[in-house]
Simulated scan of single mutants.
Amino acid sequence: MPLIRRRALLTLPLATAAIPARAQDAWPNRPIRITAPFAPGGSADTLGRLVAQELQTALGQSVVVENRPGAGGVLGSLAVARAAPDGYSFVISGIASHVVAPAINSAAGFDPIKDFTHIAFLGGPPTVFIVNNNIPARNLAEFVALARGGQRFAFGSPGAGTHGHLFGIAFMNAGRFEMDHIPYRGAGAAMGDIIGGSVPAGSITLSSAAGAIRGGQVRALALTTATRARAFPDLPTFTEQGFPDLAAMTWFGLSGPAGLPAPIVDRLNREVVRAMALPRIRDRLEADATEAVSMTAAEYTRFIETETARWAPIARAAGVRAE
């Protein structure tokens, strides 16, 4: 056998063996899981599924959203924090899971900055304060008057330590009255009891309450946007009704374990920003007054730090406990 031919045969298995190795390095080459650390039906779940559908198309791989509620978002977030930083495990991060829970729960098991790679801001809806139709209040002034006049209200939220819970505390502090908080495992469960009348009021994300508001099943008293939402032009804001410091929103983003490779982070950020700018996505979000803001990964990380400085002290002072 000629020498050149023998060398070709000897090198052929080596070249062939290198092909699977290169294929394994391509990302993504298997299904991706996004954990929504709250119950189905809430804003985290809704936004997660919207972005998952777009990522699935863009990346050419199945992107599955898995609901894993518990402990104010800690259970699902902790699972992702402990996952391998290989680009296949992500979490819908948010104020409850990545600001409040670590601030009030020393046993949370993760640092919201050091133990995650924050990738992209998804956006979020404002909070709306709603009452059951049997409550006679038609605006905040009337509700506060009832609360100060001796009527003890309870308000429901999507869970202890969620933005709805914290905002209810902020509303009580600003209005100088007291309410009893009833935490639920998600906004859907809270809405059911508010509509049914077993809970008179609620501090709920607008995206979760919008259908009941439009259907006349509950009465919306105020929205936390700085200006009125285009989708609800007749709904006044807290600012309009004498509470200028109560402008805020529930927010969510996409995060993964610490140490994610920069190329994966950059690719995901680009795809999320592109997806959230699509007219069909913006129209879907606008219907619930949800605002999508474009942020780089670094900007989203700084945003979480800023929100921590605002809300963590309120949670600690109120003795909030995640459930």
Rank of each mutant, 00 (worst) to 15 (best):
F143E: 15
I281E: 08
V265N: 08
G168L: 09
H98R: 02
R176A: 06
A145D: 15
L278G: 09
A297F: 07
P261L: 09
R68L: 06
W27Q: 03
G161H: 01
F143P: 12
R282C: 12
T11F: 00
I213V: 13
V74W: 04
T205P: 09
Y88C: 11
G159R: 02
A71S: 14
L47R: 05
G192I: 02
V273K: 09
V265E: 06
P244W: 02
D115K: 01
G256K: 01
F177A: 00
M276D: 02
A187L: 04
G253K: 08
I92L: 05
R30G: 04
W27Y: 12
A247S: 12
D45W: 09
V80H: 05
Y88R: 07
T250M: 15
P236N: 08
F167I: 10
A101R: 14
P102R: 05
A36D: 11
G197E: 02
V293W: 10
A229T: 12
V144E: 11
D25F: 10
A120T: 05
L206G: 14
V63W: 05
L55D: 08
L50R: 11
A277F: 01
G242F: 10
A222S: 08
S207P: 03
P28Y: 02
R33A: 11
S157R: 04
G70C: 09
R148V: 15
S294Y: 03
E54D: 14
A297G: 11
E286Y: 05
R30T: 04
G42C: 07
G41F: 06
G72A: 11
I34N: 13
A137G: 13
L278Q: 14
I119P: 09
A201H: 01
V99C: 04
G94T: 06
A189V: 06
P263R: 04
L122G: 09
V272M: 06
R321D: 00
V128Q: 02
S294I: 13
D86E: 11
R230P: 00
W311V: 02
A145M: 14
S294W: 05
E307V: 01
G164S: 08
Q53Y: 10
P85Q: 01
R280W: 13
G197Y: 10
L59E: 00
Q24T: 03
F303K: 15
V99T: 05
F238W: 03
A8G: 03
S198N: 04
L9K: 01
Q151S: 15
L260N: 00
I113R: 14
R82V: 10
I264E: 01
R302E: 12
A84M: 06
E178R: 14
F121C: 04
P158G: 00
Y88W: 11
F110W: 10
E286V: 03
I95W: 01
A309I: 14
L12Y: 03
N132I: 10
G41C: 12
T250V: 00
F121M: 12
A187N: 04
R316G: 08
M249C: 06
A226R: 08
L55N: 07
G48F: 07
E54L: 12
T239L: 06
S207Y: 10
P236I: 05
S294D: 06
A277T: 13
L140M: 14
